[in-house]
Design a binder for these strands. Structure first.
Lengths: 141, 141
DNA sequence: TATAAATTTGCAATCGTTACAAATCTGAAA
DNA sequence: TTTCAGATTTGTAACGATTGCAAATTTATA
């Protein structure tokens, strides 16, 4: 989802991260769009603006965000790691035709799983794959 | 979960796959255990029994199983692809301490997601991460 | 037994990610 | 302002999982 953060610099500072230009821009891409970009996506988008940007910086920064709980990792495809600045519990839907990943709300709260009694749950992930409405219309599926 | 398949050879044949020794053994590892092995796991387990086994064969075979709907991919960690011969909808829980991945049943049916109306859903994945009961007791978490 | 097709194998290539050390930047003290 | 230490960024090399591909082997068929 689109996160409404007025001051990204403050948001990072509050999380204990010094807001360098690279960090600010990377976080903005994550927060101010509906995409769930890969490292490659972020790097490509930012390169014109920050020509000296290194892909290593993107990796390092995302690791840093993760460590501070500002970002969650989306593993839908095994060869495609995506990132999301919305860390609240929500689902992801990936269209196998156009490749887009969209968010969806999960109505009810998580069910209590009997067999996991005694376990500590720190992360929940729910995702679906299929063909999105637009692609179905377009391709007659 | 533990799949109860009396005749693995027949099961593969029914799916349109000729049951070679390699395919049989690889499928047995997937079906007859609670683990959710990686390619590495499978290769290591089978190597003593089939000394000529190639890791490429494991990859090819898993791709083939996938194509015929006999196997689902589990992407919990971005650097660790696991496989499961139980393709029915169920959840996975990964313990961050011992690393084990266990199954759990999901009680109620999937909620209808309003925003996905018109989409065709072909795969559902639900997974949790945390610390399992055993590791909590052992490590005092 | 001969031959074609299917399967397996081994190796090289690819790609995403990480390690690491040098370069650059930032902020505080002098 | 200048200097210096620490933080951050960068580029390159290394690594590991996965794939491409062609040769070798096995299996099925005539």
């Amino acid at each position: 989802m689109l996160l409404k953060i007025e001051n990204v610099g403050q948001y990072l500072r509050d999380a204990g991260i010094k807001p360098s230009i690279q960090r600010l821009k990377i976080f903005e891409i994550l927060a101010k769009s509906y995409e769930h970009p890969t490292v490659e996506n972020i790097y490509t988008q930012l390169s014109p603006e920050i020509p000296t940007l290194s892909k290593t910086t993107v990796y390092n920064t995302l690791k840093l965000f993760q460590k501070h709980g500002l970002v969650m990792v989306i593993n839908i495809e095994d060869n495609e790691t995506r990132y999301d600045a919305d860390t609240s519990f929500h689902g992801h839907f990936k269209c196998n035709v156009c490749g887009k990943v969209s968010d969806f709300n999960i109505p009810n709260t998580q069910p209590l799983i009997e067999s996991l009694k005694g376990s500590l749950i720190t992360e929940s992930h729910y995702y679906l794959k299929g063909i999105c409405a637009e692609c179905r219309l377009r391709t007659d599926n």
